[in-house]
Write a protein that binds this DNA or RNA. Structure first.
Lengths: 241, 241
DNA sequence: CGACATTTTGAGTCAGCTCAATCAGTGTGG
DNA sequence: CCACACTGATTGAGCTGACTCAAAATGTCG
């Protein structure tokens, strides 16, 4: 795999939400990227840091999180290959949260400098990135609604629907089966639930024959049932097609 | 009050987060705005609509919300004079949530057309708006942490700290006293709490001499105590100064 | 003075939490 | 191949923060 294969994941992601012209695509492929591997459960960028580069997830699963004083963690978003989870650092230098790995990961770093040069030379690219930030925000809102107003089983169902949909959009799932390399504690941290409760409700989803979940592998047995339970409507993901 | 007085609120808001040059300021003041009044508790834009204009809050309090099937509401953000709560509609046409008034409000509408012309002619303005969207997202994240991982009293305290801070940034509070024209039901909807529980915990904050809250008027008696209880750290608001 | 919206209170219930084991899967070294 | 260590999944037994229901008190405004 060479550099443009890596950037291809990024392109694929961008094109799942926006249309790009050939020169724009080329400009993106020409971005300078330096690669770095991380093991599982380490920070890529920590809260409070000032960054001079954006990071691009190439392999693995990455999350955005914050810790509260009691020591509990809230995971605020998940990032799969193709995502640039800290594009916002381009305009907001100081991180108000951390970015960490959930699995071993391969990450590409692109200097702000280079990204800014590109967004300033093409308003199309600039608007594509802006749009990407807006979709991120839409996902935050949807999670907020879930945490604030949905029951644990519904939240769980919604979470799984969203994950499969996002994985499918970048070709990492067929819509039925995908890798879900998170522990139940981590899933709970994303949904504002305790580990024990997450376990019990996950068990119920299996008992209801909505899903199969063994080890890191998720299989959706009843997509409609899962969507209904989670009140999942993918509009907020604003995917093309 | 004439048109540029209205746009001045918007400018003030933008300048609380970004620096603008004189020509940029002028271009913003030249934007075409049409005014409309709304009574309390009505939608300005509803979920599912496709919009061709951005709305600018000039007077009153506006919120972004979503309803879930059980009929419960989650308020996802509050918008005070100077805010453009649906700037995102510029790049995401279909609303995935509603925008409604909490009080009678005066709203200005600016055609997407005009905004887009301006953002495309000045990358500074474009980046200012982008930055604004990123700050919105940061606030969503912070609310998510609160709803997911903080106790009711802590959430309440955090909410009040944030509200006063935002009001102060646009000159609508002196940091101690401000209008908070929301019912306890609405505050609960913003925090993912029931009305009754909101009432009881608010009462506790008063009993602890942290705040005074009568009618629509909030007075902070013990700012440090309130911040501590709410674990309030304003970094995520990314205000200048 | 109504009529209506909002706040407050009390009582009882329950979803989700904590604590404390136990079980299962995986990897390691001998 | 087995014993041990470690991580993650599961279970059971309370506990409690937050919820619902219902009613009373208070405020607001034409």
């Amino acid at each position: 795999m060479n550099k443009s294969d890596y950037l291809a994941a990024f392109l694929r992601k961008l094109e799942s939400i926006t249309e790009l012209s050939a020169p724009e695509r080329q400009a993106l492929l020409d971005l300078p990227v330096s690669l770095k591997r991380f093991e599982a459960n380490v920070d890529i960028v920590s809260e409070g840091e000032i960054t001079l580069q954006c990071c691009l997830v190439l392999e693995g699963l990455v999350c955005r999180y914050k810790l509260v004083n009691s020591g509990e963690r809230q995971i605020m978003s998940l990032h799969i290959p193709g995502d640039v989870p800290d594009l916002h650092s381009l305009h907001i230098e100081k991180m108000d949260h951390s970015l960490g790995t959930l699995t071993p990961a391969l990450v590409g770093f692109i200097p702000h400098e280079a990204v800014r040069r590109m967004t300033r030379s093409s308003y199309k690219v600039s608007e594509a990135f802006w749009r990407e930030a807006l979709i991120d925000a839409a996902i935050f809102r949807e999670w907020m609604v879930g945490i604030g107003r949905r029951s644990a089983p519904s939240r769980l169902a919604h979470f799984l629907c969203e994950f499969v949909t996002k994985m499918e959009a970048v070709g990492l799932s067929n819509g039925v089966i995908c890798e879900l390399p998170m522990t139940q504690t981590e899933i709970g941290d994303a949904l504002g639930l305790s580990t024990v409760h997450t376990n019990k409700k996950l068990r119920e989803l299996r008992a209801a024959r909505l899903i199969e979940l063994r080890g890191r592998r998720l299989k959706v047995l009843d997509w409609n049932g899962l969507c209904e339970l989670g009140e999942f409507d993918p509009t907020y993901l604003h995917l093309r097609k």
